[in-house]
């Protein structure tokens, strides 16, 4: 038996909007720790890892570990039927082949339940070791989204170069080239507006902008984004989900042969 009651149902709606274009089908894993997911895109270039900790739910009952295969597009269709202020409860029976999403309006005058068929998905779980990254950039998530969107109108790839001086985003295309440099800036009124760059050594990596733009669909989840890089390793783009956990995107770099 599984029953997870999330007061801030809009969080789950935003999570689905953030990942449904990257991943088609995925297993949601439920354990005593929380509600989580790890899934790669069909080309195995990008991976999303989601964690919503048990403590973040108003009620969290998970009698035994359960893995539920869902089509994210169908799940998104159902969650779109929930109001932004609704409380969402996820319910499933052990060994069952459906999951139920229950939506309660804030004043309890409307209660809906939507039952969705589960699917069997071969799980492809990657072991991602804890890594000390050589460059960690924290910046406003909207700024990062703006840069990725702007550069993708010029080129297909972005070179992200981080040094003590700042972080440079560069692209080239048929019509020309573009560079955006963000310097460390901590003298801001609100901490979420700061750009903070922690550097162990300079890092420069090349990525497909198509994926970066897809990751920025998580922008509504957090005011800030953290980009962690080491030379010749996948980048991690992390959006913290307030008091609940995180959504992390991993993207393999493009490397000169």
């Amino acid at each position: 038996m599984l029953e997870l009651r999330l007061l801030q149902g809009s969080l789950l709606k935003k999570v689905l909007e953030a990942i449904k274009d990257l991943v088609t089908d995925a297993n949601f894993d439920c354990s005593a720790t929380g509600f989580s997911l790890q899934a790669m895109d069909s080309s195995h270039v990008a991976l999303v890892a989601l964690l919503l900790r048990a403590e973040g739910f108003e009620h969290y009952r998970c009698d035994r570990n359960l893995s539920m295969g869902m089509n994210l597009n169908n799940m998104s269709k159902m969650l779109k039927c929930a109001g932004n202020d609704d409380i969402i409860t996820i319910k499933a029976d052990d060994g069952g082949d459906t999951v139920t999403f229950m939506f309660e309006s804030p004043n309890q005058d409307k209660i809906s339940d939507f039952e969705m068929k589960l699917m069997d998905i071969d799980s492809e779980h990657l072991g991602i070791p804890e890594t000390e990254y050589e460059a960690i950039i924290r910046m406003p998530s909207q700024e990062f989204a703006r840069i990725c969107r702007d550069l993708s109108t010029i080129g297909d790839t972005v070179v992200i170069s981080a040094s003590k001086e700042g972080v440079k985003f560069s692209t080239k295309g048929d019509i020309g080239s573009a560079n955006v440099v963000c310097r460390q800036n901590t003298s801001v009124d609100k901490p979420e507006d700061a750009t903070v760059i922690e550097i162990q050594q300079p890092v420069s990596l090349t990525f497909a902008l198509r994926y970066m733009n897809s990751f920025t669909k998580a922008t509504p989840l957090s005011n800030t984004v953290t980009v962690s890089m080491s030379n010749e390793l996948p980048v991690v783009v992390e959006y913290k989900i307030a008091e609940m956990g995180y959504i992390r995107f991993y993207l393999a770099p493009k490397i000169e042969e």
Binding site: H44, L47, H125, L126, A252, P253, K254, E256
Partner: peptide
């Protein structure tokens, strides 16, 4: 031109 790598080249399947 840089070549796109797969994540499997960096992380092992578990």
């Amino acid at each position: 031109t840089p070549v796109q790598n797969d994540l499997n080249e960096f992380y092992a399947m578990v």
